[in-house]
Amino acid sequence: MKYDDASWHYGGNFPSDLPDSAGATHTGMFLAWAVLVGLGGELFTVEEPELVNELCNRTTTPGSFFLKVCDGKLTDEDLSDRGNKFAVAYYEDGQYLADYEEMLGSSLASPYHVPDVWASFDTLRPRLDERLARWSASEG
C-alpha cells in the first residue's frame, strides 16, 4: 500500500518557486519520526543502517532521508506492523497533514514552504509523540 508519493504533490498544484524536493518534506518528517521512535520497517534496521545513522546524527534532513531511502514514496514496507496500523489511523485519514499544517505551515505561503530542517522536525515531533501516545492508549 502506498501512503504518499512526492510526485503526487509536485506533479499537481505546486508552488513554482520551490524545488520538487519540497513535495517530500512533510512525508520525510513523518518517516524520520517513525524510524526514530521504532516504527520503521526492516529496511531501516537491516538494509540501510548507515542512512539511519545519518538520520540519528542529523547529518541528513528528514526530506533528504525520505528521498534517498524511499525514492519519494512512503509505502507499508517502510513501516513496521505497528507503524502501519498507526499510519492507517493517523496519516492516511488526513489528520497528519492537518497537524503538519497547524504546527508548521500556518504562517507560510503553503505547507510546501516548510523548510526541510531539524528545527521544523523538532517543532512537529511533540505533536506526533502525543498522537502516538493517544492512539496507543486507545489500542490497548
Rank of each mutant, 00 (worst) to 15 (best):
M1H: 11
M1Q: 08
M1R: 13
K2N: 11
Y3M: 05
Y3D: 01
Y3W: 10
D5A: 12
G11T: 06
G11V: 00
N13C: 02
F14L: 06
S16P: 00
L18E: 02
A22F: 04
A22H: 15
G23T: 10
A24W: 03
T27C: 14
G28A: 10
G28L: 08
G28V: 08
M29R: 04
F30R: 11
F30P: 03
W33V: 12
W33I: 07
W33D: 07
V37D: 05
L39F: 11
G40K: 14
G40A: 10
G41N: 13
G41H: 11
E42G: 14
E42S: 14
L43P: 03
L43N: 14
V46N: 14
V46E: 14
E50R: 15
E50C: 10
V52L: 11
V52D: 04
E54R: 15
E54M: 14
L55A: 06
C56E: 15
C56M: 14
C56W: 06
N57D: 13
R58I: 01
R58A: 02
R58M: 05
R58T: 04
R58L: 02
T59A: 05
T60K: 15
P62R: 07
G63N: 09
G63F: 03
S64A: 15
F65V: 08
F65H: 10
K68V: 00
C70Q: 05
G72K: 08
K73R: 14
K73C: 12
L74H: 08
L74C: 08
T75F: 02
E77S: 15
E77L: 12
L79C: 09
L79F: 03
S80K: 07
D81K: 13
K85I: 00
F86G: 05
A87S: 04
A89I: 00
A89D: 05
Y90H: 02
Y91S: 02
E92Y: 09
D93G: 02
D93E: 10
G94S: 05
A98I: 03
D99W: 03
M103Y: 03
M103N: 04
L104I: 01
G105K: 00
G105F: 00
G105H: 06
S106K: 14
S106R: 14
L108Q: 04
A109T: 05
S110Q: 04
S110F: 00
S110D: 09
P111T: 02
P111G: 00
P111E: 00
Y112A: 09
H113I: 06
H113W: 06
V114K: 04
P115G: 07
D116H: 07
D116T: 07
V117K: 13
A119S: 12
S120F: 03
F121V: 05
T123Y: 02
T123L: 13
R125H: 05
R125M: 09
P126L: 03
L128H: 04
L128K: 01
D129K: 06
R131W: 02
R131D: 04
R131F: 00
L132N: 04
L132G: 04
A133I: 01
R134Y: 01
R134M: 04
R134C: 02
E139Y: 05
E139N: 15
E139F: 05
